[in-house]
Amino acid sequence: MNSTVQKSLLYILMPLFWLVLLVIFLYSPYAEQFLSRYHKSITIFVWSDIVDSTVIKNFERETGIKVYVNYYEGNDELLTKLEFSDGAGYDIIMPTHYMIEPLRQRGFLKKIDKSKLNFWDQLDPHLLNLYYDPQNAYSIPYLWEFYGLGINNNFFTGKKIENSWQMLFDPAYTYRVGMTDEPREILNVAGFYLFGQLKQFDELQLERIKNLLRKQKKFVDAYTDLNSDFLLTSKSAAVVFLPISSFYRARQRVDWVNFLLPKEGSLMTIENFAITAKSDKEDLAYIFINYLFKDYAVKQVCEYYGYLPTLKNLLYAMDFAGVPPIDYIFDSYFTKLSLVRLLFSRQQMSQIWLAVKA
């Protein structure tokens, strides 16, 4: 048999060989297992420090549902990736409250079926039906936190402490301060300090916010989101603008720090689960979300990272040293808490932030 005939037979037999293998596989018991494995999986896109890997492993072992995890470092990254993929590729996402409406407007979110959630009546009502999603039609609040002033008590021994944002912005004070590196939060708190409320600011007010932050820069030790607790515990800054989760980490290391809620009021954020509009695994998504709201799963992330739960029974049981109790927050201070808002366009935010950092 010459080489030409051999090659011809090879071209004929190879496709037949693979076709036979495919038929054998499809009619074997392994095919069903393989296909079911694909269908019993979900893909989530979340913050890197909120969904614990051990909780995911436990969920996979108990349910047989595989979880593919993707992480993002900011809400703008989340929005950009969803816009790039036209909302495809993920089943569950975890936007901060102020990103819910932009995602809904772009058609990226699916309405929530609360009848499939076994914990809804256990959520604290203070954290439901807020401006960004009045009926919680698209969002499921999971964790939340508020901002305040981290104080080095040793530095202020024998000195007066003003329970005010003035301690962060008034150049008359002679100590170093620490700030987050998130421009949205910084611009919100600067606007809150200057004008007493969060609203759309005109050009003159934006200029005042920019000038305030540029003057403050002279006594800012560092702008950091990940290490704001370190600024406090290392004594680099006597006063630090930080969320409760960062203060929690600081307090675990030293006992000479304290957390103040300014008398003028403060800011808060809520992290939410949402199901994407293009997800075709909605039932599996609800199974996973219900699992994440189990007491042990919520306690694990809160006790490790210092976030506050939205489940009432866990929220009122938490006791953070150096932090006002939840009873005080909800009874006396809650009306002074304002949710961080999208008050600045990306262009405005970039222009002000570049001017401050220059």
Rank of each mutant, 00 (worst) to 15 (best):
S48Q: 11
N75E: 15
F17W: 03
Y30L: 10
Y296M: 06
F108T: 02
E185L: 13
G89S: 02
S350Y: 06
A137M: 10
V323W: 08
T63L: 02
E282P: 00
I186D: 01
V46F: 00
P102R: 09
V51L: 15
L19S: 14
K81A: 04
E282G: 01
D327M: 00
E264G: 08
E207I: 03
W353D: 04
V177L: 02
F195C: 10
L128G: 08
F192P: 05
S48G: 15
I50P: 02
Q347S: 13
P324E: 10
V55C: 04
K235H: 13
A321F: 05
K263C: 01
G306C: 05
N313S: 14
K40R: 14
M167R: 03
F155R: 09
S228N: 08
A31D: 03
Y138I: 00
I275C: 07
F330H: 06
T335H: 15
L206A: 01
Q122K: 15
I92H: 03
E101N: 12
C302F: 06
F155C: 04
A88H: 14
E145L: 12
E32P: 00
F201R: 02
F156W: 06
K357T: 09
N75V: 07
E83V: 10
E182S: 09
V67D: 07
F293R: 04
D319Y: 03
L342D: 06
L194R: 10
A238K: 13
H126S: 13
A250Q: 08
S8D: 00
A88V: 09
F34R: 04
F59A: 06
G107C: 09
Q197R: 12
W18M: 11
Y147R: 09
D86P: 02
L16F: 14
D255T: 11
S48H: 14
K278P: 00
A222T: 08
N313Q: 12
Y71E: 10
Y291V: 03
P125F: 05
D121Q: 14
R176P: 00
S36L: 12
K235F: 06
F247I: 04
Y98T: 07
I24S: 12
S236K: 15
K160L: 11
K294C: 01
R208A: 15
F192Y: 15
G148M: 09
W18L: 14
F241S: 04
L231A: 06
H39P: 00
I270K: 05
K210L: 05
P29G: 05
M179C: 01
S85D: 10
K218Q: 12
T224E: 04
Q6H: 04
D86I: 01
Y68I: 11
I12V: 15
F156P: 03
R208M: 11
L78T: 01
G107L: 08
W165R: 07
D327N: 09
F241H: 14
L128T: 07
L109E: 02
L342N: 10
I289A: 09
A137W: 02
Y305S: 10
I140D: 09
A285E: 05
D49K: 11
K66N: 12
V298L: 07
N75L: 00
E264L: 04
E77N: 09
P95I: 06
Y142E: 00
F293I: 02
K66H: 14
A358V: 01
N129R: 12
D170C: 05
D225Y: 11
S266G: 05
N188V: 02
Y131R: 13
